Computed example of a mutant assay.
Amino acid sequence: MTTETPYLTALQQNGFVVIPSLLTPDEITSLRTAATKATTLTRTGHWPHFRTVPKQFPPWPTTPPPASEGGIWGVQHLLHPSLPGRAEFARFYFSPKVLAIAEELLGLKNHPSSSSTSDEPLVMELFNLLVAPETKDFELRWHRDDIPETASADEEAAMLAAKSPAGKQSHAQYNLALCPDASLIVVPGSHRRVRTEVERNAAPYEPHMPGQLVVELRPGDAVFYDSNILHRGVYKGKEEGGEESRLTLHGSLGVKGVADDQGHDAEQKKVRATAVLQHGVGAWVHRDDAAFGLGERPEKMRANLVAMGTGEGVGFSLQG
């Protein structure tokens, strides 16, 4: 039996969906070149927005650790107007094929969003780059992006229900590989249930969680996943000064509201504002030079992000 929304069906059932060959070979080459340049700028101290070893969550330090201590594992704000290569990243982020997948996953497949007279439902959110740390391996502990590990079973159930009312997502989150990537490890189906006792009592970096699956991506493949699936990352270090061995675009797109008869819309907006604005995107997205020059739709999506606020006082989703 076929379905009109195969990606959404897979996401709802498993908590993730792999989409092979989302990029053409030429697109892979162009984006890999831009990503390598952005990483080099960041590693050499010429781009101030990054994720640093050994921290897993924001806020991030303002000075990167030396390569001997692992250095960086991410480059932030690929859509920032001051970043060289921004145009290349923006063309992908706002490309019709990416937006079409997001629309399906967010239940907007038949929404007239491409019309200049329609109300744009999508929100520009985050677009970052995940890279290999230098000289040493680095691992992220098991987590859900917006639910603390200290939550009780009852609290966890309530938060899962509130963050995905009636099974609807407030955002579409993805990893797009520009190099072979087997860094993401997930527990399929865990996005719709509380942790088992084994999962709750497991070591933070448990290497063999029951039912876990390593998501293997070839260059050009993408995985879209529910951010509250139980997951972690394992990043192999690269030789200091050597060729970049991991370049994975990490993006998210939101929807303006996920309402239901329980009145969860306001709570959804607050939760999503914290998840997005904690990374500092609100500090620059409103600037005059932040326009993309790619037509009306990207600007409407950017305006939807501006409407979220600056990010002052929103706090952080998780700590560590």
Rank of each mutant, 00 (worst) to 15 (best):
S317Y: 08
G280Y: 11
R218W: 11
V255C: 07
V53R: 00
A307F: 05
P121N: 03
E197V: 11
L83D: 04
D137W: 07
A158E: 04
E88I: 12
V198F: 14
G293D: 09
Q56M: 14
R287I: 12
G70S: 05
T44E: 15
L108A: 09
R141F: 11
F94G: 01
A102N: 02
G45H: 09
L99N: 01
E156D: 08
R51D: 10
K236L: 15
S245N: 12
F92K: 00
E299Q: 06
H49P: 08
H208E: 15
M301R: 00
G107I: 03
T39C: 14
P64I: 03
P133R: 01
G315F: 07
L122F: 03
A100S: 11
D265A: 12
P121D: 03
L79H: 06
L247G: 06
A307D: 10
E104C: 09
V314D: 07
Q12S: 12
G74H: 04
E206N: 08
G251A: 08
Q278K: 02
E120I: 03
P61S: 13
A290G: 12
G241N: 11
P48I: 10
M209I: 06
N128P: 09
R297H: 07
F16H: 04
D261S: 07
S115C: 11
E216M: 04
G71Y: 01
A177K: 01
K256E: 08
S190I: 00
M124C: 11
Q173N: 14
A35P: 06
G313A: 08
M209R: 03
F138G: 00
S183R: 03
K109Y: 15
P6N: 04
G282K: 02
D261E: 12
V194H: 07
G254Q: 01
M301N: 04
F316T: 04
D181F: 03
A162C: 06
D154G: 05
G237K: 00
P64S: 03
A100Y: 02
Q76M: 14
S21W: 08
T40V: 13
G263H: 01
E4C: 14
H279P: 09
R91A: 13
Y205R: 06
V53W: 00
F127M: 05
M209P: 02
P20F: 08
Y174M: 11
K37L: 15
L83N: 09
T42D: 10
P96I: 02
G74D: 03
G282L: 10
V271P: 05
E240H: 12
V276I: 10
A34T: 07
D221L: 06
M1Q: 15
R272P: 08
K168E: 11
V223N: 00
A182T: 05
S245K: 15
H80A: 10
H77N: 14
A10R: 05
Y7P: 06
D154R: 00
M124G: 02
L126T: 04
T196D: 08
S190H: 02
G251N: 05
W142T: 00
A87I: 13
W47L: 12
L108N: 00
M1C: 13
T62K: 09
R144P: 06
R51Y: 11
V258A: 05
E244A: 15
K238N: 02
G45T: 13
R43Y: 14
W73C: 02
V314N: 08
V234C: 05
A161G: 01
L129K: 01
D181R: 02
L31Q: 04
H77Q: 14
F92V: 03
Q262H: 10
W47S: 10
A275S: 10
S115D: 13
